[in-house]
Design a protein around this nucleic acid. Structure first.
Lengths: 155, 155
DNA sequence: TATTGTTATACTCTATAACTATA
DNA sequence: TATAGTTATAGAGTATAACAATA
């Protein structure tokens, strides 16, 4: 048994409160996601894959996109197949390096990514609107701190 | 275009800070999940499905489990097929209502769920350990508040 | 030899529609 | 007729291993 598994959260009320709140938050977020996503233009995975292309000054390679989205190259290839067939991105062989492909959003692709971003932003905003001013400041601070804390975990 | 999509987050610095922090947090959490889960006994979906059975006093029906996990009945059936084949749960026809099945964890199933819970708890704890005492209190409070706020969104 | 991308293969998660058995 | 569950079918996401083309 690992050291972490041997720890009884009940022995530390602060840890227990943190873990419970975290679990509640994750569950609530999951439920909310389920309510919003059925009619989405892009799935989460597709959005994560395409999103970097909106900021990209130049077309990106498949591996770059795969790494940014946190998926394997074959998975990215397959996803790109579907997205290309739907006319959301273009895949052309690079002239400089004939091994590489250049991936870029089409006009429809840009629209799709922007729509999905707007959906996500709307969801965030709806949550924001539920909070009192002091809570809003506290939430932004805590979430930023937690994001940073993740980087210190498991190296 | 929806009202929400028309809002420019940049016009409200507090909203912008909140949305940015939220996005950073979600991305960091996703990366961390990817680092931990490859060697997990259960996938997230399997864990979500089995988890209620650990607390259940009596065996649960398939629909109950499906609803709790947020998946359709056929999805639950298929998942139960695999979990039953792996010996993690038992599926027996109910005596009182011959339409229903009674689902319960086997000893191995209990171990698997507990292991996964320990993994999740360890991840939460690692994050908790990164925080200063004041940050821990603030985080627990904010996460609980956000979980509650979700319930007020979209009714 | 190393890198980029694809194909082959296999498995999980997901849903809707249609079905069976029971109430 | 309504409910519990399953089967049929289809599609997306996921990975590893093996491959081709190019550097």
């Amino acid at each position: 048994m690992s050291a972490a598994a041997a720890v009884d959260p009940a022995t530390d009320p602060q840890l227990d409160a943190f873990v419970t709140a975290f679990d509640d938050f994750v569950r609530a977020a999951k439920r909310a996601r389920g309510r919003v996503e059925p009619d989405a233009v892009l799935t989460t995975a597709q959005f994560d894959l395409l999103s970097p292309l909106l900021e990209a000054e130049v077309p990106l390679g498949l591996r770059e996109l795969a790494r940014a989205a946190g998926v394997s190259a074959p998975t990215a290839t397959r996803m790109v197949d579907g997205l290309e067939a739907r006319g959301l991105l273009t895949r052309v062989r690079s002239e400089e390096d004939r091994r590489a492909v250049c991936l870029a959003l089409t006009e429809d692709g840009v629209t799709a990514v922007q729509q999905r971003r707007a959906q996500v932003a709307a969801r965030r905003r709806a949550l924001f609107d539920q909070l009192a001013p002091a809570e809003r400041r506290a939430a932004a601070k805590v979430l930023a701190r937690l994001a940073a804390a993740y980087e210190g975990v498991e190296q």
